[in-house]
Structure formats: structure tokens, C-alpha cells
Simulated scan of single mutants.
Amino acid sequence: MLHNLLTPLSDEFIFFNLFRYLTFRSGAAVMTALLISFVLGPPVIAWLRKKQREGQPIREDGPEGHLLSKKGTPTMGGVLILLALSISTLLWADLTNGFVWVVMFITLGFGAVGFADDYLKLTRRSHHGVPSRLRLGVEILISLVAAFWVIHLTSPELETALAVPVFKDLLIDIGWAFLAVAVFVIVGSSNAVNLTDGLDGLAIVPVMIAAGCFALIAYLVGNTVFSEYLQIHYVQGTGELAVICAGLVGASLGFLWFNAPPAMVFMGDTGSLSCGGALGGVAVITKHELVLAIIGGLFVLETVSVIVQVLSFKLTGKRVFRMAPLHHHFEKKGWREETIVVRFWIIAAILALIGLSTLKLR
């Protein structure tokens, strides 16, 4: 909004020229989202605690320590992330850019699904929320609308194409199958983050790392000079997504202040589904869907551990892991929660660096 209002005045007031620059607005989005999180965090958490009283329902079949250490902690902290991200985006992004609205549609849409899921879990005092088929159906519908929207906004030579990292000229036009790929990426990313969100601070830092990486990718992909130099496919208008990703970095950092062990609040499905959906949407728009699987490799590992566990038990009656997702396996082995969280953060950072290296390996 500030970009749209103040940039036209730059000829008269040179200071307003700053609002033209993505780098300035991205940095401002980080600081704005962080400040909003710090200011709204305490009253939002107090309100959630008052409304929820007993906090998030804890699974009785989960790690034994959670029944003691997590009991009474409020959930739905993702509301704080969504507030900080939405306000910072509205303030600093170019609101005439269609891609901005696509990502916000995905983020708020998945946030609404997560909110409904959290609400039902709280009112029923159960870990069962929205029926899985209904939830998946709504997620697919949101993603499908977003995919059609992206095709409409993207140039004809790229609209249904899949870019392959490392190979500079390899662009595969998959036609309408692109819709299925886009839906899979957005829904998969959203639910992968949701599965990872099981320990204090475990999911939010990898989200922040991935958002930072995609802020850089969006900026480079949307810049003709840098995209030509790096030999990556230029997608006009995607640079503005750097502001959204930067806002997500700030919102995540602010949320971490309250989610650091021992957590004052959990993000719940409201936060995990929306954050994962946002990352998936940006990956689809920037044509870096496959790179997301590397940068968000920790989320992939957690998801694969669940799939392997379920298939193994159904086919052989035996479990591969002591408990899935993967972080619970290490809890069952006796690792301290803080040890698991920090080591998983390290893995997320390493995978992010590997993912970013694909920008230069051409």
C-alpha cells in the first residue's frame, strides 16, 4: 500500500524514492512483522489462554513427557503469524501485483482450514478436528483455484512449464498436468510443515529459513539481470513475492520469541498449514517447485517417515520407527527435546544451503 501511495510522490519528495526498491520494502516487511509480533503477542496469547483454559489437547498415545510438559499450553498461535504477515504485506507490497494476492489467498485459505481444525479439537477436547477427507478436499480446492490463477498471470511460455534445477535450459511443458503438480506442491508443503510441528520451536525455524531462501529466489527470478546471469528462468512480477517471504521471516522470528522452549503458545494447524501453503505457493509461482523439496528437505523427511511407518505397519505389521513423525522417534530413544530441535534446525540450514546452491550450478 505504501508503495502504491508514496512512489508517485517521489518526483517531489526524493525520500519517497526508497519505496520503489524491493530490498528496502523487504527489509521493512521483516521489521514490521517482527514489531507486530512483539506488540500483539502477549495480548493474543493471554486471550487464547483465557478462551482455551485447558490448552491444546495432548495425545495420550504420544511421548509420555508431553502429558506433563505441554499440558495447558494454548494453541492457535498461528493467528499471530497471520496477523503480522498480512499487515506487513498490505503495508509494503505492491498491491497491484497479482502474485501477491495469489499467495495471500493460499495463506489465508489454509489458515482458515487450520483454524477450523484447531477450533474443533479444542471444543471436542480431542486431537480429532475437521474430518481428514473434508480437510484435504478444501485444501485441494484452494490450491486448484490458486493454480488456475497462477497460469492466468504467467507468460505463455512458462505458464504450464516445470523447470528442472541445475539444467539451465531444461523446461518441461507438462500442459494441464501442471495443475496436479501445483496442487501437490501446495497441499504437500502445507501438510509437511503441519507434521513437523510437534516440538517447541521445531517447525517455525525451518519455515523461517525456507522463507528467507525463497525471498532471495523470488527477487532473483523476478529480476532480468540476475536471472540472465544465473541462467534461471525469468518470471515477470515474482520479485514482489520477496516482500511476502520477508514478512514471513519477521512473523516467524517474532513467533519464535513466544514458541521457544518451553513454549508459551503453539502455532497449531492455523499456523503450520498457512506457512506451508505460503511456501508451496511461492515455489510454484517462481518455478522452483523441485528446489522447495531440497530447501524444505526437513519437512520432506518428516513426511516420508510417516508414510514409511504407515506402509510398513499395514504390509508387515511392524514399525520402522519407534514413533512417527521422525522427531518423536528420537524422543522415544531418549533424546532431550532441545537436542532434537537444535539438531533438526542444523539439518534444515544445511539443506537450505544445498537448495540455494542449485541457483549457481548450471
Rank of each mutant, 00 (worst) to 15 (best):
I209N: 10
W101A: 05
L35Y: 01
L83N: 02
L68C: 00
T358Q: 07
L356P: 14
I45Q: 07
V193A: 00
W335G: 02
A146Q: 10
R336M: 14
F321A: 12
V30T: 01
G268R: 09
T196I: 04
E64L: 12
G62M: 02
I204P: 04
Q231R: 14
S10I: 03
L153Q: 10
A146H: 08
F299G: 13
K168W: 01
V187T: 15
S189A: 09
W47N: 04
K50C: 00
P325T: 11
F226P: 00
H233R: 14
D169T: 14
L359M: 13
G198W: 04
L141I: 15
W176H: 15
G78R: 03
G111W: 08
V181F: 15
V300T: 08
P261V: 13
F115Y: 13
L40K: 07
S10A: 15
V205E: 00
A348D: 05
F110M: 01
S357M: 12
L9Y: 06
H128M: 13
L144C: 15
K71P: 03
N223W: 07
H152A: 12
A215Y: 00
L359D: 09
A192G: 11
K51V: 08
G268S: 08
I307F: 10
A260P: 09
V265Q: 10
K50Q: 05
S37W: 03
F255R: 07
A177F: 15
G250K: 12
F184L: 15
L90Q: 05
I307P: 01
H66V: 01
P325W: 03
I151H: 04
N97W: 01
P57E: 08
W149M: 09
G355W: 09
L68E: 12
L48P: 07
I87M: 12
H327Y: 06
L253F: 15
P8A: 01
I186M: 15
P57A: 02
S189C: 07
E157H: 08
A246T: 06
F99L: 07
V102D: 04
Y219G: 04
T286L: 07
N17R: 14
M76N: 11
E157C: 00
L108I: 11
A29S: 15
V164S: 13
G137K: 13
L108R: 11
S143N: 14
E60I: 12
Y229N: 12
I295M: 04
S252T: 10
V183H: 02
A146R: 14
Q231I: 00
E157M: 05
P42L: 13
V103C: 08
K287E: 02
Y119E: 00
A278P: 02
V44G: 05
E54M: 11
V30C: 06
L292A: 06
G55E: 04
R49W: 03
R25K: 13
L202K: 03
V284C: 07
N191K: 06
G55H: 11
G222Y: 06
L2F: 15
F167P: 05
A211D: 08
L83Q: 01
G222P: 05
P42D: 13
V306Q: 11
